[in-house]
Simulated scan of single mutants.
Amino acid sequence: MSDDIPSDSPESFPEPFPVLFLAAGRVAGLLDADTALRSQRAAFTALGDGTADLPGKIMHPSRFDDSVVFSYVSRLSADSGTVAKFGSVNPGNAAAGLPTVHAVITVLDPVTGRLAAVLDGTTVTTLRTAAASAVAVDALAVPDAADLAVLGSGTQALAHTRAIARVRELKSVRLWSPTPEHRARAAETLAVELDLPVEPAGTAEAAVTGASLVAACTLSTTPVVRGQWLALGCTVVSVGSFEPSRREVDAEVVRRARECGAVVVDDPATAAEHAGPVVKALREGLLTPEDLIPLGGVLTGRRTARDGPEDIVYYNSVGLGIQDAAAAWAVVEAARADGAGEGERR
């Protein structure tokens, strides 16, 4: 009998790392602001280079209520295994002060496919979404953009303000959401955290008018940002229009960006199917598929989004599995470097 170990024998594989079980607080500690930003630059650079695996996402509106179930699968590189995220969007959570997105993430070993980690997906989603928007702002906005308008007062609105403050020296923030108590509380929280003048705005128009940066972080099915309000040179980021029925910006935002600037998306094929304002503009002939510029193309220098300081740039993100893959592996690597033990449940 041969002494050789069959190639598919368990002994032929390296000793696996312990399986990690990382709760929300532990994930937040490992995925700090700079780590989150690096992970999202890596995600979109891999997309721009064409080196990532990105199967189509699943978004399924419930027949029972206004929730949406979703599932993403992606792989960033040969050195990092497949990552899957499963969860739901529950708009009613906002009224209770809860995140509208809840999810769980599983991470597989790149060599064997064995389970490597289970992570709180809600925290990953919040931090990677805001970090990706900050990466987009850094790539698309004029260098001296310093006045931020935020639409929304929930988890993503706060996270976006914090993340954008990492890539631009903000001078002021104006924040609007439909409920006066919510926007006042959010403004107070951010003013203390960031040591910035953060004002609750009485209307969306008052928040947006004159701003050089606009971040729309709502689940609105009707526009909260109108193109006629936008100042020359403005960069608009929208993360709430992740399905065809949701449109945070009106057609005038899209028109002005297409005619004097650029319409940038996280992934053109995904945006054409899921991003409400983009789906509508394509259907009505306001946009063509060739008008959609991928953020990864801008980061890798293959595409240009802004030709001058007065261009208006609109960035729509529906969220991609590659963002979760990059963020999840950043968390796993940080946990391993921190000496995480088997079955860690912190």
Rank of each mutant, 00 (worst) to 15 (best):
S2K: 08
D3N: 09
I5A: 05
D8V: 10
S9D: 15
F13V: 14
P14C: 13
F17T: 11
A24L: 07
G25M: 07
G25R: 14
A28P: 06
T35L: 11
A36K: 06
L37R: 11
F44T: 00
T45C: 00
A46K: 00
L47H: 02
G48H: 00
G48Y: 00
G50Y: 07
G50S: 12
G50I: 08
P55N: 09
G56W: 10
M59S: 14
M59L: 15
P61D: 13
R63T: 14
R63P: 08
D65I: 10
S71E: 12
R75W: 03
S77Q: 07
S77I: 04
G97A: 14
G97T: 10
I105D: 02
L108H: 15
T112F: 06
G113H: 09
L119N: 04
L119R: 03
L119F: 10
D120R: 11
R128A: 04
S133M: 13
A139G: 01
A149R: 01
L151T: 01
L158I: 09
T161I: 03
L170V: 05
K171D: 15
K171L: 11
R174P: 00
L175P: 04
A187R: 03
T189N: 05
E193A: 13
L194A: 08
D195Q: 13
L196P: 05
A201P: 07
E205H: 15
E205F: 07
A207I: 09
V208C: 12
G210W: 12
V214E: 07
V214R: 08
A215M: 11
Q228A: 15
W229F: 13
S238I: 05
V239P: 04
E243T: 12
E243Y: 08
R246H: 08
R255I: 03
C260Q: 14
C260F: 11
A269L: 09
A272G: 06
R283L: 05
G285D: 09
G285N: 04
G285Q: 11
L287Y: 03
L287R: 03
D291Y: 05
I293F: 00
I293S: 00
L299I: 00
G301C: 02
R303D: 00
I312N: 00
I312V: 15
N316D: 11
S317R: 05
G321I: 10
A337C: 07
A337I: 02
R345I: 12
R345W: 13
R345L: 15
R345Y: 11
R346K: 12
R346G: 06
